[in-house]
Simulated scan of single mutants.
Amino acid sequence: MSPSLSSGPAAPLIQLDQAHVIRGQVRVLHGLSLAIAQGQHTALLGPNGCGKSSFIKLITRELYPLARGDGLPAVQVLGQSRWQVDRLRSQLGIVSGDLEDALADQHGLDALAAVVSGFFASHVIPGHKQVSDDMRDQALAALAQVGAQALAERPYAQLSAGQRRRVLIARALVNKPQALLLDEPSSGLDVVARQHLLDALSQLARQGITLLLVTHHIEEVIPEIERVLLMRDGRILADGPRQTVLQDGPLSAAFDAPLHIHQHDGQLQVRVLPLSA
């Protein structure tokens, strides 16, 4: 079922209402309540282990919240609480390390085929499915959109980490999703590849593609991201405009260390201050 089309206000991209998640015997998300509007570029920022990846898995239906006693949904995406997983993942283009590893394990998969697989919400192109010329053209256009068209015929497993990340973004774009969910997208990239990736994300944001960036690197919160959520221990510690949240006090509390943040040539820079004697 597709999201309802109406003349009224657009449903939030993501809405959580007292969402609790348990993995194994550990509660990893504690009663999260928030709404992210369509078109609102947002960063979810926090230290390793704070619950960021669990948040993404909750949205993409890899994890499920505890049932609420009142029967109301704890999680809604684009106004719906029930989704077919493949349909949901076409509406929310996902870029994650898990997906990168799964595609790299597919023997003989070139970059173009990796992008085409996005049409089927699968790690491979199902044998019983036909790949049309239009799909190939859209996949090539998506690669061109992220500056990776020259990689089309290269084996995906042999690409550098930065090249793979661009192919993953192209894969997410072929379905013209409502938003991109980027889970630690610069993990494993060198400084040059990371900057190229961030430049590509800025360009996509300016084209009107909603970004939800999940990261523990404060420097990756690109200027186009206007809202920042700070997480710690499975809870939202701060939520507001970037100029309010990206300050020494909130960041030091989230990362449990004295931090100082400043801008240089438009780029965020962070310094860990020495501990007081």
Rank of each mutant, 00 (worst) to 15 (best):
M1R: 01
P3W: 10
S6N: 12
P12H: 10
L13V: 06
L13W: 01
L16R: 11
Q18E: 14
H20M: 02
R23C: 15
R23Y: 11
V26P: 00
L32T: 06
S33T: 15
A35R: 15
H41Y: 11
L44E: 03
C50K: 02
K57Y: 12
E62G: 04
E62Q: 15
L63W: 03
L63H: 08
L63I: 04
A67P: 04
D70T: 06
L72N: 07
P73T: 07
P73R: 05
A74L: 05
Q76F: 07
L78R: 12
G79L: 12
Q80N: 08
S81Y: 06
R82N: 08
V85R: 15
D86F: 01
D86S: 10
D86I: 02
D86Y: 05
R89A: 02
S90K: 15
Q91D: 00
S96P: 03
S96K: 05
S96H: 08
A102W: 01
A104E: 09
A104I: 05
D105T: 13
L109I: 09
A111V: 04
L112I: 11
A114K: 07
V116L: 06
V116D: 03
S117P: 06
I125P: 02
K129D: 01
K129Q: 15
Q130N: 10
D134H: 06
D137N: 12
Q138K: 15
L140C: 03
A141Y: 04
A142G: 05
A142V: 04
Q145I: 00
V146Q: 00
A148W: 11
Q149F: 06
Q149I: 11
R154G: 03
Y156K: 11
Y156N: 08
Q163P: 01
Q163W: 02
L168T: 01
I169C: 03
A172L: 10
A172S: 13
N175T: 14
A179C: 02
L182V: 01
L182F: 04
D183C: 01
D183G: 04
S186N: 10
L189K: 09
V191K: 07
Q195E: 15
H196V: 07
D199Q: 15
L204P: 04
Q207V: 08
T210Q: 13
H216K: 13
E219S: 14
I222Y: 00
E224D: 14
E224H: 01
I225T: 09
E226F: 00
R227T: 14
V228D: 07
L229G: 01
L230T: 05
R235D: 04
L237K: 05
G240T: 11
P241T: 09
P241N: 11
P241K: 09
V245I: 15
L251N: 07
L251I: 09
A253Q: 15
A254Y: 05
F255L: 10
F255K: 03
D256F: 00
L259R: 06
I261W: 03
D265Y: 07
R271N: 08
R271S: 11
V272G: 05
L275Q: 06
